[in-house]
Design a protein around this nucleic acid. Structure first.
Lengths: 204, 204
DNA sequence: GTCTATAGTGCGATAGAC
DNA sequence: GTCTATCGCACTATAGAC
């Protein structure tokens, strides 16, 4: 391992993130990313199936964390208890040191619909995988899908909070809080702020 | 409205769905779709921003139904009660006559990752819009997002059931059932089928 | 309606690692 | 010799600019 620099993928990812953040996703060509790390466009596409995918690597580890968390839940746990365990395990993948990086990456994604599409697709795959794992644990449908989608939603709501400007709490703390709020949804039948009738102008 | 054939968009959509279903999405070029209805490729892209979008038109009406359903909920309703109202209104957009068409369309989408990305993106936009409407009704965060995402999940779970092979129940009936199951999730702490310890081979 | 950049693919050639 | 990462080149279709 001397002829070629190791960590090619990681260097392509870093270069892509920086270029997307500065010039914008559409204005950045695959050739520019490749040249930034001394490679050709063709090599870029050998590592990543398309320009979007370079920002969505490492989701496998994230998915595995979720599944490991499910496995860690004691047998006989309710679907939501198992999901709570998965959330805690997954949240541990995002220590505070990663916060700045996650923030920059999300800024890039939020600026580009094409990237948002890829992101929600990855999120959908996660939820579907968790649902399958729950079914394997003996949870029937539609409970498995509902619990899995709810867990995913809790994670992304907490994640958005975690990378919000002034936020300092850990992701683990935030996921636990949001999960509690979800539990309260089904049983708390009152709105918390004052209702303003007619505040939503109905169209048509 | 006499110089050109009316319903151009609808005819392009029908031709696209048929071609995607027979030749496959990737194997179908925009030019083929356009020529199938006597137009040029350029005209296709004037009506639809890309090849995927031709399958995702009419989401505005769907979104409006959801919002109208929210408005129909009495002031002071809980977030989930408001969502239940929205689900009923939205489900009414899918009478049984549409079932066959929805089935074919979903078959095409399920066969192509690029189309799945667009679909989940549209679903995400729906959930975000519902969340905003709930905030306008006085629901705070994260309750608004949690309720909106839960409502969206309920709809799509019910929708998948509605277009399943042997299904005959109406979409309205199915959304109501799935919503009840969701309500039970947070309070029902037991799995319904027998738990088989060790049934999930834990890796590593 | 034409013209063009570029995303993304297929295949072959090269060259180091083993 | 095999295996694998990289490069080079030709090519199509998308999508947007003019």
């Amino acid at each position: 391992m001397a002829r070629w620099e190791p960590g090619t993928r990681a260097r392509l990812q870093a270069a892509a993130l920086e270029l997307y953040a500065t010039r914008g996703f559409e204005q950045t060509t695959a050739e520019q990313i490749a040249q930034a790390v001394g490679l050709t466009e063709r090599t870029f596409f050998r590592h990543f199936s398309d320009k979007r995918e370079v920002l969505f690597d490492g989701q496998e580890a994230f998915l595995r964390a979720f599944l490991d968390g499910l496995d860690a839940a004691p047998p006989g746990s309710s679907p939501l208890e198992a999901v709570a365990s998965a959330l805690a395990t997954a949240a541990a993948l995002f220590p505070d040191e990663r916060r700045a990086h996650s923030r920059l990456r999300q800024t890039v994604i939020d600026a580009e619909p094409a990237l948002q599409e890829r992101e929600v697709h990855k999120r959908a795959i996660l939820a579907a995988t968790v649902a399958r794992a729950l079914r394997d644990r003996g949870v029937d449908e539609p409970a498995a899908t509902l619990a899995a989608e709810s867990g995913a939603t809790v994670f992304w709501v907490a994640f958005a909070q975690w990378i919000a400007a002034a936020e300092t709490r850990s992701l683990a703390e935030l996921t636990a809080d949001v999960l509690d709020r979800l539990r309260g949804l089904a049983v708390a039948p009152v709105v918390t702020r004052g209702v303003v009738p007619g505040a939503v102008p109905g169209g048509s």
